[in-house]
Structure formats: structure tokens, C-alpha cells
């Protein structure tokens, strides 16, 4: 009996340790963002001041609202494009057997293993050639390499698991493949599309290397670049209060989204990886 009490205490201590490890950094960012002026340097782990001065100065010191809007535009466009291309391709890859399908799936999977930097100079040339340097279009285009392969892959695995009889009847009735995808598969694919869409959104929302390289002016930056390059009143001192306020501002929506859709996300993550 005594060992069981000991074991149970140990188990709960482990859980407490995991929770502290997981949420302390974010908690500390929140309380730091609410400290302004000298209070910022207190390093106490309890909230000891509440001031929104840092939040005000983030939005007035630079076009941070504009940066958030840029990130939203890029991420939403990337998600919409990836899902459209992903669903049509997944229909072909998941429901029709044709020669070269395995090779095609393998190629798509291997693209998701490309290091971003390996396409950087080629992409830079492409962006220049299209005349979209320093515009959001360059980011929408380049982010596709990150989201498209896994969107296609995950949607294909979902599509493959749907019963075979689904489209047979419709085809016998003479429906075109496009009608079949739109009328039969799209309604069934919504859960899978929400999951992959969310994952693609998070990838595009977090993307840094392309955004750092293909944008130049403060107004065109997305959130990650804006936060990484946030500068203070003087060149030698980083405005930590502002950085924390900006970090909390852009993280809260994502964390809320993830917590709402946690079941879906977990299944999507594991489906993409385990079956991949």
C-alpha cells in the first residue's frame, strides 16, 4: 500500500513537472508583457504589475497591425490554394489507379523533405522574374512548397479510406468526375480539410526564411519577421517588453485555435506522419 501511495505521488509530481515545463515560458511572456519601464527587469515569477503600455507601443511604434493583416492574407491564401489543389489531386491519387501513381506520391513526399534554403536562390530569381519581390504574392507563391506536399499527402490518405462504392453509382449515371468530386467527396472531406487547412495555416503563419528574404519594407513584413526585427528606441537595447507584447498578441489566437481543434489536429498530425 505504501509503495502505491509513493508511486501515485510520483506520478502526479511528473504531471505537474510536465505542465510547468509546457506552459511556464508562455506564462512568463504574458506577465513580462504586462510589465513596463523598470518593472520589466524584476524577473519575479509572479505577476506584479499590470500595464498595457507595451501593447500600445507595439501598435504605435511600427505598422504591427498591418503586419498581422499581411500574415492573415498570406496564410489564408496559401490555405485556400493548397486545399483546392490538394483535393483535386487527392481525388486522382486516392481514387483512380493509374501507372506511375506510386512514383508520383513518392516525389510529392520527397518535396516535403527539401530544405528551404536549397530552393532559396532559384526562388529569388523566380520572384524577381515575376516582379513580385517585396510583395505578399512572393510569400503566397513560395509558401506553397511548404504546404502543398503534406496537404496532398494527408488528403490522399483520407480519400483512400472512403468506401469504394461511393462514386460508382454516380459514374454509371453519367456524372462527370468534377461533379463527383464536388457533390460526393467535398461534403465527406470537410473534417479532413479543416484539419489539413489548420496545419497549413500554422505553417504559413510561422514561416520565416522566405518572408525574411523576399520582403524589404516594414509594411510588407509578416508577423514573424516583424517580431524578429523589432527594434527599440536605441540601437543597443532590445525592447523586450514590446517583443513580449507582440509575441503574446500573435500567439493567443493560434493557441485558442489549436485548443479548440486539438482532437482534429492530433489526428491530422499523426495521420500525416505515421502513414507517411
Amino acid at each position: 500500500m505504501r509503495t502505491s501511495v509513493l508511486a501515485r505521488t510520483g506520478f502526479w509530481l511528473l504531471i505537474v513537472a510536465i505542465v510547468i515545463f509546457a506552459i511556464f515560458p508562455f506564462y512568463y511572456a504574458v506577465i513580462s508583457s504586462l510589465r513596463s519601464g523598470q518593472a520589466l527587469f524584476s524577473a519575479a515569477v509572479w505577476p506584479d504589475s499590470v500595464s498595457i503600455a507595451n501593447y500600445v507601443s507595439v501598435f504605435t511604434g511600427q505598422p504591427f497591425g498591418r503586419n498581422i493583416l499581411n500574415s492573415v492574407i498570406v496564410a489564408v491564401s496559401v490555405v485556400a490554394l493548397s486545399l483546392f489543389l490538394g483535393v483535386t489531386a487527392a481525388y486522382a491519387l486516392g481514387r483512380v489507379s493509374f501507372r506511375g501513381r506510386g512514383l508520383l506520391l513518392f516525389t510529392i513526399l520527397s518535396v516535403s523533405m527539401f530544405p528551404q534554403v536549397a530552393v532559396l536562390s532559384g526562388m529569388f530569381e523566380l520572384v524577381r522574374a515575376f516582379g513580385i519581390y517585396n510583395s505578399l504574392w512572393s510569400l503566397i507563391l513560395s509558401n506553397m512548397i511548404l504546404t502543398l506536399p503534406f496537404t496532398v499527402w494527408v488528403l490522399t490518405t483520407f480519400m483512400r479510406e472512403l468506401p469504394k462504392e461511393l462514386e460508382e453509382a454516380a459514374f454509371v449515371d453519367g456524372a462527370s468526375p468534377w461533379t463527383v468530386v464536388r457533390r460526393i467527396f467535398l461534403p465527406l472531406m470537410w473534417p479532413a480539410m479543416v484539419t489539413t487547412g489548420l496545419l497549413a495555416f500554422i505553417v504559413a503563419w510561422n514561416e520565416f526564411l522566405f518572408a525574411l528574404t523576399f520582403t524589404l519594407s516594414t509594411e510588407q513584413r509578416t508577423v514573424p519577421v516583424a517580431i524578429a526585427l523589432l527594434t527599440g528606441a536605441t540601437q543597443f537595447e532590445l525592447p523586450w517588453g514590446n517583443i513580449m507584447a507582440a509575441s503574446v498578441t500573435v500567439t493567443v489566437p493560434v493557441v485558442v485555435l489549436v485548443l479548440i481543434f486539438q482532437r482534429r489536429i492530433v489526428s491530422g498530425l499523426t495521420a500525416g506522419a505515421v502513414k507517411g
Binding site: I18, V19, A22, I23, P25, F26, Y28, A29, I202, W205, N206, F208, V223, P224, V225, I227, A228, I243, M244, S247, V250, T251, V254, V255, L257, V258, L259, Q262, I265, V266
Partner: peptide, 16 residues
């Protein structure tokens, strides 16, 4: 709780 670190953008975690 353990999903929170995963959801935080890399740049934000680097700064935090």
C-alpha cells in the same frame, strides 16, 4: 497543455 509549445510560432518561442 503540451500542445501549447507546439502551437507557438518558432520565432515567438525564440524571443520568449
Amino acid at each position: 497543455a503540451i500542445l501549447i509549445p507546439w502551437a507557438i510560432p518558432t520565432i515567438v518561442s525564440a524571443q520568449m
